[in-house]
Computed example of a mutant assay.
Amino acid sequence: MKHIAIFLLTLSPAVAYAQVLEELTMQLRDSDGIWRMQGGLAACLGGFESPSTPEQTANAFEHMEWQNAGSYGGLTEYAYKDSSALVAQNGTFCEIADMGVPQTEAADLVRRTFAEMSEPLWTQSTSAAGCTTFTSPSGRVIEISSGGQDPICGDTPTSAIRVLNEASKG
């Protein structure tokens, strides 16, 4: 056990973060929607500095046995219980949604994930539509809205966490 602790201490912060984010993705099969969302957020983030590839993100959902619900318009959809995920095939965004997790809990989940990682929280603000957003120094954005076809902002009983990567792609 001591050898594992010494090994973990010698890992670079980026490798250690990637390992913890990978461990968080194991929550994708949890019976509780909030923990599935944290696993999905980890899969969507891929890393705090730069996103994973769309293939890596899709592999996380497939590895945890989420059902591939099909591809359309450049998106691949996954489903498990009351949760769903959309992965843009070009890597511009990833979304994790749950029909039983309110938006306020989803925003708290983002804050908790960053705290658990000892990572500085990205700058929090409110979008023009009234959604809670978190923006990284490189321009990646996490946006919280309702789940479903036509997302809205505010305190709704459903939520979606979108990781928007287009600013960091450029």
Results as ranks from 00 to 15, higher is better:
103 Q>H: 03
41 L>Y: 07
147 G>D: 11
148 G>R: 09
45 L>N: 06
41 L>H: 06
16 A>H: 10
139 G>H: 08
109 L>R: 08
25 T>L: 05
83 S>W: 00
164 L>C: 00
30 D>Q: 06
136 S>D: 10
97 A>E: 15
131 C>K: 13
57 T>V: 14
32 D>T: 10
161 I>F: 05
120 P>N: 08
36 R>Y: 07
115 A>C: 00
28 L>F: 09
113 T>R: 01
55 E>R: 05
20 V>F: 02
146 S>T: 07
168 S>T: 14
14 A>Y: 02
68 N>F: 10
106 A>R: 08
9 L>D: 12
131 C>D: 12
101 V>M: 04
159 S>Y: 07
38 Q>C: 02
89 Q>W: 03
129 A>G: 07
71 S>F: 03
40 G>T: 04
56 Q>S: 12
3 H>A: 13
17 Y>R: 12
136 S>T: 13
70 G>V: 08
19 Q>Y: 04
37 M>V: 09
3 H>M: 04
100 G>H: 11
50 S>F: 06
112 R>P: 00
146 S>W: 05
5 A>E: 15
118 S>C: 00
61 F>Y: 15
4 I>N: 08
149 Q>A: 13
97 A>K: 10
142 I>C: 02
50 S>E: 06
143 E>F: 01
164 L>E: 09
68 N>H: 12
27 Q>W: 04
